[in-house]
Amino acid sequence: MSGAHANGSAVDSLHVDIESVVHRLAPEAKLVALVGFVVAVALTPRTSVWAFGVYAVAIWLVVFVSHVPARVVLRRLAVIVPFVLFAVLIPFIGGGEQTTVLGVSLSVDGLWAMWNILAKASIGATASIVLSATTRVPDVLTGLTRLRVPRVLVAIIAFMMRYLDLLVRQLGRMRTSMTARCHDPRWLWQVKPIASSAGALFVRSYERGERVHQAMLARGYTGTMPTLDRRPATAVDWSRAASLPVVAVVTLIVAVVR
């Protein structure tokens, strides 16, 4: 039994284990705040540049209050890079009115589109990162249940998160044993061993699913997950969490009305 942190665990690296006001908020309040915030951001007209400034300041204030290190947030923002690259291309291939920057002809509309995607994508992703960095996965699941997300769906997500690391580690071990036998594929037609191990992993996963089902039956499972919830959000939780989407919605209204 090696430690849980061997081979780069995907699930464990999500939560940043420190104490803060944001960490302590009830998860359902945080989920509602997150959705309210990103929806407001997504609806904001792209020409209201100042509004995105307000959003960025607001979300980074939350990052600051949560004590999550900025470099953690920035590193995890890397997932949006492929789309950033696409966004940067738009002014070059876009049509409509053109402007010349440093001798290169760029689409004005395309520049706006690029700005729109960059601003919304980075602010939205930062908000998601704050949620997962300050909320443990079991708490996120509790929050989803309290928000009346169908229990079956939450349970499926719970099982997925529970077994994800186990599967990733199994896959990692298979790959290590392949490398140990000098299999280092570089071309598509050399992937057969990798695919075979993925197939074997599927079979193992399915069999585990059946064994887990038996373990559930043995403990009285009859097809519905029991409710195990205890402390729901307090008014304080709600009002604290609401501060972020309220700022965003007010900003949105001002941006649209002006």
Binding site: F159, M160, L164, L167, H213, M225
Partner: peptide, 20 residues
């Protein structure tokens, strides 16, 4: 619940796995 959950974990894991 157990089968769909673990199958989802499989798809997620398979997506993380790079092939040449």
């Amino acid at each position: 619940i157990p089968l769909a959950g673990i199958a989802a974990a499989f798809i997620f894991a398979a997506q993380m796995f790079n092939f040449p």
